[in-house]
Computed example of a mutant assay.
Amino acid sequence: MTNPFSIAISNELTVPTIKVDSPEDLSKSMNDLGFHDPRPILVILGGAAKMSQTDLDRLRSLFVKVLAPVVEELGAFVVDGGTDFGVMQMIGQARAEISGKFALIGVTPVGKVALPGHTHSEEVTALEPNHSHFVLTPGTNWGDESPWLADVATVLAKGSPSVAILVNGGEISKQDVSHNLRANRPVLAVAGSGRLADTLAFALEGEASDEEVRELVASGLVQAIDFKDSFDSLTELIKSYLS
């Protein structure tokens, strides 16, 4: 396949896509996809298929009322994992709900997602249909995309502000957080969203945790934000990181 190409999400919808093989080629590949100018970047990390419907219903307003409107207002871009689950589904649906025009770039391993016209020997996952672009990375396991996700955000930002927000999340989200911290990107853990985000929030308060979590917190770049705070205060906080 020639870069860039289009993935048919439905009969009416095709999404511009690139397949990347080498980190050294990432900057050129993103240019080929049409991204030339620096933009503030919001990286969305967190729960996918293991999020309960209760969690999804409870957290959806964060995406519709805060994250999508902030990004749209600032002309920022969003980078996430691109599949039709969890936080990625919620930001895709929020973009559609507010009729957002911001670029929403899904970064996902080529061996784990359903591609039209391709036969797959392993179980694959659907891509989220409201994303504007996809970046297919090497790999056949979830987590193979973690370093790429952080790198795509860095390449797109081109020195502009960027921040990652962690909502819920499990073991793979630990890798995602780690790679974003290595990129010197602040990570906001949403306390009250469950699982890893709550674990990081507790660790910031000095509550006992495992060594991996303690190392993440020791970076000094992790901050907890409370899901119970007002939408206005959460909006202003995220704006302060991206402005």
Rank of each mutant, 00 (worst) to 15 (best):
P147C: 12
D37A: 08
A224E: 04
E122T: 12
P116S: 01
S240I: 00
A153S: 09
S27P: 01
L181P: 06
S22W: 10
R214G: 01
E171W: 09
L104N: 14
D21E: 11
M90R: 05
F77L: 06
L221V: 11
V190W: 07
E12R: 10
I225R: 12
V15Q: 10
L221A: 13
V124A: 13
L74I: 02
A126Q: 09
R195F: 06
D21Y: 04
H120P: 06
N130T: 07
G47P: 03
L59T: 10
L56F: 09
A126T: 03
F35S: 02
V152W: 06
D232W: 01
W142S: 09
D144Q: 14
I91R: 15
K112I: 04
I225T: 11
E97I: 07
Q53E: 13
V177M: 12
A76W: 02
A201V: 06
G170W: 05
I105V: 15
Y241W: 03
S6W: 10
I9E: 08
P138S: 00
T140E: 15
K112P: 00
S230P: 09
L181A: 12
G46K: 04
R60L: 09
N31H: 05
K101N: 14
D57L: 07
S173Y: 04
T235E: 10
E212W: 06
G220Q: 12
N3R: 00
E123C: 00
E205N: 14
E128T: 07
A164G: 10
T14H: 13
H179E: 12
D25M: 06
S240T: 01
A189W: 08
F102K: 03
V64G: 01
G220D: 08
S233C: 04
V213H: 02
L62W: 03
M51T: 15
G86S: 10
K65V: 05
S240Q: 02
V177Q: 13
V20L: 09
Q89I: 00
S178E: 06
S52K: 09
N168A: 13
V70P: 02
L200E: 08
L188F: 14
L127R: 10
T83R: 11
V107A: 05
D144F: 13
G159E: 04
S61H: 15
E122C: 04
I44G: 06
D232K: 12
V79C: 04
I238C: 05
F227C: 11
R195I: 03
M51I: 15
D84R: 04
A218V: 09
T235G: 03
S61K: 15
M51L: 15
E211P: 00
S240C: 00
S209Q: 04
A203F: 08
E73I: 01
D21T: 11
M51V: 13
I105R: 08
S27R: 06
W148R: 12
A218N: 15
E236D: 12
S52C: 05
G192P: 09
N184F: 03
L127T: 13
A164P: 04
G100W: 03
D151P: 00
N141C: 13
F85E: 15
H133R: 11
D210T: 04
V71N: 05
V78K: 06
P16K: 05
L216I: 09
V163D: 05
